[in-house]
Simulated scan of single mutants.
Amino acid sequence: MSSLDFNHLDSFNQGGLKTRLTKKQKIVIAAAAVLVIALAVLLCVKGCGGSSGARDNTLSLVRMYMERGEYDRALDKLEELLMKNAGDKEALDLMDAVIAEKNRASSGDASSANVRVEVDTDGLTQVIESMKSGIERNNRAAEQNSRAMADLLSQQKAQAEMEKTRLEEQKKQQKLAEEQRKKDEAAKKAAEEKRKAEEEALKKKNAQLNKEISFVNDEIQQGKAALQAGSIDKALSHFETARNNLPVSDGEPAFSAGKYSEMAQALHNSAQNAASGEVRNRLEEAAVSYAQNAISLTPKDAASNYIIGADAMSRKDYKKALDSFMQAVSSDSKNYLYYYDLGRAQYMLKKFTEAKYSFNTACQLNPSFAPSRYNLGLTNNKLN
């Protein structure tokens, strides 16, 4: 019903039965109807007002998009409004304006376009500062790399110079070693020739002497051959036979002293290459015995004094070793081994200044003999 008509509320049909309403019931029903109508009107008013507010907000949003140049977003919002109300004149006019602005912006007519450009100057400043910092870091890194490259080239140059110097020194040492080898060979040859000459002089004296000399020499040569073959007992036997046939009938004591010294040297040299300590001890003991025989006849015999000194060194009797080596270098000042072992004895007795002189002399006599240089370094270290 469009309006309230209380006259029609007098009765109603219920279950096919006609019932008469009381006055109180009529009032209650009328009040309920009024409440329903008021609620409907209120909902209509709120719905219409909310719709109008949303439309205004959308139009404001479209104008903001238009000012920022976001034309496509503005057109999307206008289409949403026109989908709801195709006859919205304000929305249609605004759409025409947006399309016109978009066309002008795309054609490059910046003077007629209402474009708002916002620049984040703070962000731009940060970017510029970051770029400047990056450039400065790159410059510092490039400078460091340049210095590192210069240092590397300098080191390589220095190393090349050191290598060149080392090679030159190596060639020099090789040349000195070769010269020393030739000198040693010449000295050895001269000594051998001298010995043979002396023997030949003795041989001429008489046939008996020649026979004795030949026998002793033959036994010594057989003893040396046995040493080279490793037959120690056989070698010692030949040397003992030679000793038993000394002295010879003439030319003494020089000949016998020389033979004792010769056998002592052969035994000592063989002992240096012995395969076992037992064999070495046997050979050294025999060498010392023959050396003592030689010294008893010629106290200044260099080789025999050296062998006695070496034996004393092995027994750590450094005082005796010092005396024997001193006698050896006094009799033969050209043998670098004599000076080397003399320096060792002096070093062990803490005579570092004397040891330095001995090692230095050994280096001068034979520059290629490394132990002399090593021990010279140790001695200089003791002398600070």
Rank of each mutant, 00 (worst) to 15 (best):
E79K: 01
M83W: 13
L82G: 05
L82K: 02
L35S: 11
L78I: 06
V34E: 08
G47F: 06
L59Y: 06
M66F: 08
C48P: 14
K77M: 02
S52P: 11
G50S: 14
V36H: 02
G49H: 15
N85C: 03
V41K: 03
Y65A: 07
E67N: 10
A74W: 00
S52V: 15
R55L: 09
Y71R: 09
L42I: 07
I37V: 14
G47H: 10
A74M: 02
I37L: 13
V34D: 01
L39W: 09
A54N: 04
N57E: 14
V41P: 03
A40P: 07
L61F: 10
E70K: 06
K77A: 09
A38P: 04
K46N: 12
G53M: 07
G69S: 05
D76F: 05
M64Y: 12
V62M: 00
K77V: 05
I37C: 12
V62F: 01
A38S: 08
L82N: 00
E79M: 07
G47I: 06
A33W: 07
A74T: 00
L61I: 09
L35C: 13
G53H: 12
Y71T: 03
G50D: 15
R68K: 14
A74H: 02
D72I: 03
M64H: 13
R73M: 06
G69L: 03
R68Q: 12
S52N: 15
A40Q: 10
L42C: 08
L59P: 05
S60E: 08
L42D: 07
R63T: 03
G69C: 00
S60W: 02
L81H: 04
V36M: 07
V41C: 04
L43I: 12
L42F: 09
S52R: 14
E80R: 05
G69F: 07
L42A: 10
A54L: 07
A40K: 09
G69K: 00
Y65W: 04
L42V: 10
K46Y: 13
N57T: 15
L78T: 08
K77F: 04
S51C: 11
D72Y: 01
V45I: 08
M66G: 01
R73Q: 05
K46E: 12
A32C: 03
C44T: 15
L43G: 11
Y65G: 02
V36T: 06
C44I: 15
V36Q: 02
L59V: 00
L61A: 12
L39S: 09
L82R: 04
G50L: 12
V45Q: 09
R68W: 05
E67M: 10
L35Y: 11
G49Y: 15
L35D: 08
L39G: 08
L75E: 06
L35N: 10
V45T: 05
L59I: 00
K46A: 11
D56F: 13
